[in-house]
Design a protein around this nucleic acid. Sequence first.
RNA 1: CGGCGUGUAGCGCAGUCUGGUAGCGCACUUGCUUCGGGAGUAAGGGGUCGGAGGUUCAAAUCCUCUCACGCCGACCA
Length: 565
Amino acid sequence: MRAKRYSISTLKETPSEAEITSHRLMIRAGLIKKTASGIYSWMPLGLRVLKKIEKIIREEMDTAGAQEVLLPAIQPAELWKESGRWDQYDEGLLLKLKDRHSRDFCFGPTHEEVITDLARTELKSHRQLPINFYQIQTKFRDETRPRFGVLRAREFIMKDAYSFHSDKASLEETYQLMHSVYSKILQRMELDYRPVEADSGSIGGNASTEFHVIAESGEDVIAFSTESDYAANVELAEAIAPPSETENMLEMEKVPTPDAKTIEKVSTLLEIPEEKTIKTLLVKGSETEIVALVLRGDHTLSSVKAEKLSSVASPLRMADPEEIMTALGCQIGYIGPCNLPFPVYVDRSAAAIRNFVGGANEDGYHIRNINWHRDSKIEAIVDLREIKVGDPSPDGKGKIRLKRGIEVGHIFQLGDKYSKSMKANVLNDSGKTTALQMGCYGMGVTRLAGAVIEQNHDESGIIWPHVLAPFEAVIIPINAQKSQKVFDKTEELYAELKDLGCDVILDDRDDVRPGVKFNEWELIGVPHRLVIGEKSLKKNKIEYTHRKKGEALEISKEKAISLIN
RNA sequence: CGGCGUGUAGCGCAGUCUGGUAGCGCACUUGCUUCGGGAGUAAGGGGUCGGAGGUUCAAAUCCUCUCACGCCGACCA
């Protein structure tokens, strides 16, 4: 490739929209251009990176025996109504469309319905199983707040795979295989990543693992053990019950606490630690109007854990202040666990304390020395809170610390969730009709491009891993228009590298000064740079610089070629 | 979805308060000089000032509506 005929459009200034490094660099290097909020066009340089990501994914999926298909981007509403997700899928996220006959369609945010439909017509016998189909497809999720460039875009490219099995053991086997395939893919991209126990969210099902690329800018928080391999999304990480307190129960006492509507203020006013207070959260219930969730004052509710309670309405919604006023006659800030007219679910840690402080269900008052059972009924003791730094790891080894990550992959065991609702059955080995067991495995292709940059950059720009760089090497001649020797040597080297199959670009632009070229290629992040100028040619050398190592070496052409290959 | 903010040349911005010829830097075009780290110089091209309506002799500027984009928030009980 010659730069003279190649679209390179870098920016010196950063467009104001770009908040985080990868977004800024992708725009400045001219990899992407924004077309609308959360919708990007990929320029030639950026597309080269995407293709390389896709290539690695394809190779590993194919090696694992998965078969590539291409499913429609636009999907008929009927399938989504059959699975029940037409109305249920996180409100708004699903982009709904109508055709000219005003029939309902959506732009696929994911493809469980389509593939299950395909499976029920294609798969008839257990002898066709297990089978794993994958595709690389453009998806659309109408995020409320797209941000971070390609890391949370509305339109994005994803690799999704769906496996089908006649029993759970076979599903488990493929799930484990995909676990190792994902690890291999991320290793090949030289990423620092962690597999993380996760919530399966609206897709449904049982076991699920997220693959996170570790990055400060990540939107997810991961809880790690200091001692073991344990890692889980904070939303889900189990908070172990502390030992129950044994102090003697004291008399209950109502105390005035004007204007103390937060745990912090109550704790300061009454001179007690926050660990000796509790907060009572009222949320919408599924069977009752309202359900009370009780946490220790210093703890935070995990909305994912709360939604898992069958008596809590999903998605989680807090009760309105008016509703609370009607039910209890007090404001938010004075709610307590005593004599509540709705079921009370208590977090393990909150259940373990004695003689604690809670709201009096009367404005301006709290109660001291509340004790469970004696003063307040408990529907159940459950794990409701988010895990904190320093908590014991749920596997009993070490303590918890937190890191941020970018979710680039997510694998699930869906079981028969879709096959049951959509009647995807096969005949098993004893001739009986059974619902297909299903697994699904997603990986964000466009998101990976951004995640790689988050982990690989410096002040000058992107530092691509060799396998993903838009070009492996760039040749920059100095003053080739004046020096025939430079010109000849450049062409010779270019031809040789091309013959070796190297993905090389020759920067033959004669209207661009060397300094500009250096800066541009560092911004774009090409790993190997070869500079050819009179100075080093006199010594029969050329100048080689590795993007990451930085220092320039004067070496022979042959040596440079061997460094690149 | 709620709060706040911003829309002026491809990009970054000034001008808006106090109405009166639409500007600056980068980028782009042409010439000359330059050519090892985002050159200098001269001349140029490029705008329905997000859109609609209104006030006014006159609107980028004031008023109303609307659209788009961005940031923050959506577990303070």
